[in-house]
Design a protein around this nucleic acid. Structure first.
Length: 508
RNA sequence: CGCGGGGUAGAGCAGCCCGGUAGCUUACCAGGCUCAUAACCUGGGGGUCGGAGGUUCAAAUCCUCCCCCCGCAACCA
């Protein structure tokens, strides 16, 4: 089956932070998970290169728009590559094909009479070059940033009518309980839909914003974020020009953080519905990463966790594992160098140490060859069967946030079980007694085979480590497939003792 | 009464829907083991489950009120 996974496209006015890294890692984990299940996955992530914020950043830089956008976009692309993210398409809204499809869609909606022009009156702060709502202002009615009173001005703009589709959307949510996951966010969306929906402003006059896609029916305007950024999800599939579009779109999954719930779960499905296109199949919504102690990250507090720094200290796979293992379903999740170090030690002690202790034993006592499995007893087989059964059941579940965190948990508990098995069977004692040779080999084989199963399950979350584990067991060109057959490790294969998977971290 | 989420051992979390001896990881302590990476195994100390009422034989779990934290409310994952 062909599946499609997307992340939001990220604004370029800043550097990528841990949240961007997380969403894109999550998509990559889901992609690899699905690939192991035999599904083809097309995965897109990328950058939003339009809008006033980006325009400001360009104007404040010494660079041309093109140079600035290229540089900033590359920051994201390079980070994602460094994080091992296997995206199939990197979105850039500056891409001409995207802009063309945006215009086609706008014209389509306009021709259906769903876009109206009217004047918008509001309080405009010249410092921010933005309209302000009363709730944005301080107690004196001034802009909190510029300490000046905003001007009441009126501006003509184009609007997309949402209200006619509100009831349709409510019904859709209620009749598709899995559409928005976790379910609590569906409730939140339903809450937003209790009141009539205002017309959605979809344009900006070029006099204010020049960085955007021109409206096909009025060259004095560019389109505002919604019909530009959201459309990336289908322009990437070459919507309107791709006979296979319906097929892949019907298995599409949007990953987003909770802050952009409203545009994605209200504006976007209504836009698609107006176009005669079905909504995305699933939304997966996650919370924020905040600092240890529940404090929001901020530069002034010095608790900002930078993904690039964390990769330098802990490595890609440990960061990926931490993020996947520690995002809670309920709310926001905490991250700090200390917490990451805890997560790192779990991997190092549990999986890394297990691999090293058994490999060294094979190297010293078995001439670096995987021993015979002929003498495996019931206990040995039971360990392997239990691990295989657990992994099999996880990989049978539908993709989702809960499935992914269960995967992480199942890996740690398999590592625990194998360490306990190893300690209980004292192979280092057996090794010294020639009469116990068969038993010794059985225990070592069992441990190696357990490690093989763990490495296979680890692939979506920690692909590089997974590869190292399999290779160290003498498996050439490991293939990662969602099959967990116990006792499949080839006897006689040459193991390779390499560097520790998770080496000791130097204290600064 | 704008909407929503959270408050459970020093730290990070699960349990709450479907009430019945308070659990996991980490940190700490002790013992074991010594194959291994700061290890691993076993055991232990530490919590009146934000507060107050109520329902019940029984409440972290259900109900009511209150306190605190965090998001969202036209553009930060």
């Amino acid at each position: 089956m062909e599946k499609y996974i997307t992340t939001p496209i990220y604004y370029l006015n800043g550097l990528p932070h841990i949240g961007h890294a997380y969403t894109s890692i999550l998509g990559d984990v889901m992609k690899k998970f699905e690939q192991m299940r035999g599904n083809n996955v097309y995965y897109s992530t990328g950058t939003d290169e339009h809008g006033q914020k980006n325009q400001h950043s360009i104007e404040n830089s010494e660079l041309s728009a093109e140079e600035f956008l290229q540089r900033q976009s590359d920051n994201f692309r390079n980070l994602f590559i460094n994080l091992g993210i296997d995206f199939d398409f990197f979105v850039r809204t500056s891409r001409p094909e995207h802009q063309k499809i945006v215009q086609e869609i706008l014209q389509n909606i306009y021709d259906r009479g769903l876009i109206v022009k009217k004047s918008y009156e509001g309080l405009y702060c010249e410092g921010c070059e933005q309209f302000k709502k009363k709730s944005d202002l301080d107690e004196n009615g001034h802009c909190p940033d510029h300490k000046t009173a905003p001007k009441a001005i009126s501006e003509e703009n184009y609007f997309f009518k949402l209200e006619p589709y509100r009831q349709w959307l409510i019904d859709y949510i209620k009749s598709h309980p899995d559409w928005i996951q976790p379910a609590k966010y569906a409730n939140e969306v339903l809450g937003m839909l209790k009141e009539p929906l205002e017309d959605l402003c979809i344009s900006r006059p070029k006099s204010r914003v020049w960085l955007g896609v021109e409206l096909p029916f009025d060259t004095n305007y560019v389109t505002y974020i919604w019909f530009d950024a959201l459309v990336n999800y289908i322009s990437t599939l070459n919507f309107g020009h791709n006979p296979d579009f319906e097929n892949i779109w019907s298995n599409s999954h949007h990953l987003i953080a909770k802050d952009i719930l409203k545009p994605h779960c209200i504006y976007w499905p209504i836009m698609l519905h107006a176009l005669g296109v079905a909504p995305v199949k699933h939304y997966f919504i996650h919370g924020y990463w905040i600092g240890e102690g529940g404090v929001k990250m901020s530069k002034s507090l010095g608790n900002v966790v930078d993904p690039v720094e964390m990769v330098d200290i802990f490595g890609v796979d440990a960061l990926r594992f931490y993020l996947i293992n520690n995002m809670t379903m309920a709310g926001d999740s905490q991250i700090s160098p200390d917490l990451l170090k805890q997560g790192y030690k779990i991997l190092a002690n549990n999986i890394g140490n297990l691999q090293m202790r058994v490999l060294k034993m094979v190297q010293k006592n078995l001439n670096s060859k995987v021993p015979s499995k002929a003498a495996l007893n019931d206990e040995d087989k039971q360990l392997l069967n239990n691990i295989a059964k657990r992994f099999t059941s996880v990989f049978r579940k539908d993709i989702g946030l809960e499935t992914i965190s269960e995967l992480a948990e199942s890996i740690i508990s398999a590592g625990d079980a194998t360490n306990a098995y190893f300690a209980a069977n004292t192979p280092w004692v057996l090794a010294k007694d020639p009469a116990q040779k068969d038993r010794f080999e059985a225990v070592v084989y069992t441990t190696l085979d357990a490690l093989r199963l763990i490495g296979n399950a680890l692939y979506p979350i920690a692909p590089t480590t997974a590869g190292k584990i399999e290779t160290s067991l003498g498996i050439e060109n490991p293939q990662f497939v969602a099959e967990f057959k116990p006792m499949s490790l080839a006897e006689g294969a040459a193991i390779k003792v390499g560097d520790p998977l998770f080496p000791m971290i130097e204290e600064k």
